[in-house]
Amino acid sequence: MKLNLKVWRQKGAETGGKFETYTVEANEHMSFLEMLDVLNEQLIAEQKEPVSFEHDCREGICGTCSMVINGHPHGPMKGTTTCQLHMRHFNDGETITIEPFRANAFPVIKDLVVDRSAFDRIIQAGGYISVNTGQAQDGNSIPIEKELASEAFDAATCIGCGACVAACPNASAMLFTSAKISHLNMLPQGEVEAAQRVLNMVDQMDAEGFGACSNVTACEAECPKDISVKNIARVNREYFAATLASERVSKK
C-alpha cells in the first residue's frame, strides 16, 4: 500500500515547526512504527535526516510513543498504543497526518519527541507509599478485597504516555494524576498518606502548566489503557475532603 505522510518536523524546542510531506510504500502487516522505520530508512538512503520519534518496547506497555495520528493520540483505534497500531487499519493511498503530543507542559524536543518530565515531578510530589526497603510486613497480613484490588489495578495500568493531556482540549493532566492517586489511595497501604498525597500531587499538577479538567472525557476516549474518568471524580472528592475536612495543607 502507498501512503502519503504529512509529518511535523521541528528542529528543537525554541524553533518553530512545519509539516513535510513524504510518500512511503508500506504493507498491511506492519505496525505503524515499522512503517515509520521504512520512511526513515528511505530518508537515510537519500542522506536526509530521519524523523525523530520516541518508541521503545513496541508492545504497548512502556508508554514512550508520543504522536498524534490523524488527530488521535496513538491513532484511531480504541485502547491501542501507536506501536500496536497496524497498517491494516489504513487504506491504500490515504494521507496520514502525524503530529507530536501538543501541550505547553510537554515542550517539543525534536520532531515528534516531547518532554514529559512534568509527569515525573507529579509522582515525586507524592505518588508513592513511604515505605523503606525492609520495613514491610508479611504480604498476606493485609487482606484486600478482590474487587477493590482489581479497581486499584485498573487505575494502576496507566502507562504514563500522556495521551490524556494530548487529547484534552485543555491539555489537562487530570486523568493521569487521578489514576496515579486513585491507585494508591484506594489501597489500605496507601490510605495512611492519602490526604497529603492528593494535596501535594494536585498542587504539583497545577504548577506544571496543565489546563483544568472540564469533564470533556476526550482523555478517557483516547486513553490506550482505557483509564476511567471515575478516577477524576474520586480525586475531586478526596481533594475537597483533604482541603476542607483534614488539617493537612499542601507541602508543595
Binding site: G134, A136, Q137, P143, E145, K146, A156, Q189
Partner: peptide, 15 residues
C-alpha cells in the same frame, strides 16, 4: 516489599 509499596497483585476472594 512490593505489597507494602502498593503493587496490586492478584488476590483471591478472601483478599
Amino acid at each position: 516489599q512490593a505489597v507494602a509499596q502498593g503493587v496490586p497483585f492478584a488476590r483471591e476472594y478472601g483478599g
